[in-house]
Simulated assay, not measured.
Amino acid sequence: MNTVLHKSNTRGSAEHGWLQAKHTFSFASYFNPERMSFGVLRVLNDDVIAAGMGFGTHPHDNMEIITIPLEGDLEHKDSMNNTAVIKSGDIQVLSAGSGITHSEYNKNKDRPVKLLQIWVLPNKHNVSPRYDQISLNIEDRHNKFQQVLSPNSNDSGVWIHQEAWFSMIDIDEGKSMNYRLKNPEKNGVYLFVLNGKATINNQLVEDRDGYGLWNTSEIEIVANSNAELLLMEVPMSNR
């Protein structure tokens, strides 16, 4: 088994006044040649957008972009004429494919919005752009893995053009759970701690830590406190 630990305080930072961002992997002005990606997981940004502010219209192509709001309401508009608001409990996916423009704004004028934005390299290029969002039942992740993303359009959660599976779990202190990889021969798992503390295969992880494991078929999670975790199972190579 191989592992990589990214402590919360080692992430890149960006402070733009209206935006506070933490970058697990190299992004924008933060560059670390040892922190380029975890397999096809290219970007994991932990963003706080000030009230009424946001990202103006900008382009993307050939990237699977997943947004998970943690607090507040985020308004999305794109060149496919989609206008939507996503909130805590939702998950949004944008397959940029052959090219798309979009904007993202904090819909509220009185409080910040907090979100994760995740980029995954696709296994198909120049596909037709696609947008989707769903609302999740948070109760379905209490002491069990709630699948929120997969490669399959008829499976639980949203889907993307990649052999990847995302799951979320809210685990009670003292509880132990085992995650079995869908494709252990090709995939690894990157765990991101939304809050709390847990021991992953004997490694302690805490708030906003990231921990990647590969060349293994199963991962043991023991909660040292009540904890919320995001598990991202992704191919370690795009070939």
Rank of each mutant, 00 (worst) to 15 (best):
T83C: 09
F25W: 00
V93I: 15
V113N: 00
P122L: 03
V48D: 00
V43M: 03
G54R: 03
K87L: 01
N106R: 06
K77G: 11
Q133T: 14
Q117P: 12
A96G: 08
F38S: 04
D110T: 14
V93H: 05
K114E: 10
K109Y: 02
P129H: 05
H23C: 01
G54N: 10
G97H: 00
R42D: 05
L115M: 12
G39A: 01
S95M: 08
L74V: 13
E64H: 08
A28Q: 06
N81A: 12
S98Q: 10
D47I: 10
I68A: 09
Y30L: 07
L116G: 04
P129S: 12
D46H: 01
I91L: 04
G97Q: 03
V48A: 07
K107F: 01
T57M: 06
N81V: 03
P59T: 03
E104Y: 05
S98C: 02
Q133N: 14
H76Y: 10
I49G: 00
N126P: 04
I68W: 05
K109L: 11
Y131T: 13
K87Y: 01
A50E: 06
H76I: 11
D132F: 02
I68G: 07
I134Y: 03
H58L: 07
R35F: 04
H125A: 14
S103V: 13
N62H: 11
S29N: 15
K77C: 14
S79V: 12
Y105T: 10
